[in-house]
């Protein structure tokens, strides 16, 4: 390393420091405009003793219902802007807006709600807010849910897409961490909190691993059914299948074409690994035509069976 390289490294903002500063900044600016936010996951999960220390690649915040627009607008004044997100269907309503800043090595994810908490979103936020904890990051006070709710947040994050993302080991690790905290009646406490948040079924694998006795709901409502379907999904095929299935007959072909052949911009958003230039795009479309068509047909049939629809 040359002297200049050393100087650059010395002054380069690493992700660890960036997460602390951006969390502090987001909390300060939210408070300044009177918007309540809770910091989720990140270094505070380690502080609370529920997750091993790791460097986060973004800041996750949950904003009180109805105030996302005001908050994102405030963050925009500081240079944080929305990252491109492909306009594609989701089994579970899109739950966050990702913001980036040209001078920062991390993103800020503004969550409008936390998937898996199936009670009314205002009620969920109030439950999380009432039991919040105050911590200090970069010398600034920030709020985060208490260890019980924070554990459910982590568990649901892992259980939302266990098939598509590398979350193997998350739940056992979380349970092991919680047991080290030696909280009395932990399974009962956690189940009670999950009940308040409408998460006894969505977080059931976690609660059971913790030692709680939670029976499986055999007649799930729509929200729970979609949660389960989403948990089984690997990509977006099932979401597209649901959208096609629910679309009016005349619009089904449009959805089908968009599913298999998204616009070049969406294609790059969906597959950032594609090589630059036209060659990368063509390869991406070719691969999508090959696997996507087959998967879509299979998923559409599964969706129809699970939802009891016969018009696919």
């Amino acid at each position: 390393m040359s002297t200049d390289d050393r100087a650059d490294a010395e002054y380069t903002l690493g992700r660890s420091e960036a997460v602390e500063l951006a969390t502090a900044w987001a909390s300060h600016r939210a408070a300044r405009i009177g918007v309540r936010i809770l910091v989720l996951k990140g270094p505070l999960a380690h502080t609370q003793g529920i997750r091993a220390k790791r460097t986060s690649s973004d800041v996750d915040i949950l904003v009180e219902p109805g105030r996302s627009e005001a908050l994102i607008s405030e963050f925009g004044l500081g240079g944080w802007h929305e990252r491109f997100a492909p306009d594609i269907p989701w089994l579970i309503e899109l739950h966050s807006t990702t913001l980036f800043h040209a001078r920062w090595p991390i993103d800020i994810d503004v969550h409008h709600y936390w998937p898996g908490f199936l009670v009314d979103r205002q009620a969920a936020f109030e439950t999380m807010w009432v039991d919040r904890e105050q911590h200090e990051l970069a010398g600034v006070s920030v709020f985060t849910p208490d260890a019980l709710t924070a554990s459910l947040v982590l568990a649901l994050h892992s259980l939302r897409r266990p098939a598509s993302e590398d979350h193997a080991g998350d739940i056992p690790n979380l349970v092991a961490k919680l047991r080290r905290l030696s909280l009395d009646n932990l399974p009962a406490l956690m189940t009670d909190r999950a009940r308040l948040l409408g998460a006894t079924q969505t977080s059931r694998p976690f609660l059971v691993a913790l030692g709680a006795d939670v029976a499986e709901e055999l007649n799930p409502d729509d929200d729970l059914r979609l949660w389960k379907l989403n948990a089984l999904a690997r990509g977006h095929t099932r979401a597209w299948a649901a959208a096609i299935s629910n679309a009016p007959l005349r619009k089904k072909p449009v959805y089908l074409i968009r599913a298999v052949l998204p616009s070049p911009r969406e294609m790059r958003g969906l597959h950032p690994e594609l090589a630059p230039g036209i060659t990368g795009l063509v390869r991406g479309y070719w691969r999508r035509l090959g696997s996507g068509g087959r998967e879509l047909t299979k998923a559409a049939l599964q969706w129809a069976r699970r939802s009891g629809r016969a018009d696919v």
Binding site: Y11, E17, H28, G78, W80, R103
Partner: peptide, 24 residues
């Protein structure tokens, strides 16, 4: 001002500034 250290460097952020840009 938010402040966080790394080794011999301190990273600062004036949170009421118009732009959100840290200083090392």
């Amino acid at each position: 001002v938010a402040e966080t250290p790394r080794d011999e460097t301190v990273f600062l952020l004036a949170m009421d500034n118009a732009l959100c840009v840290p200083v090392a």
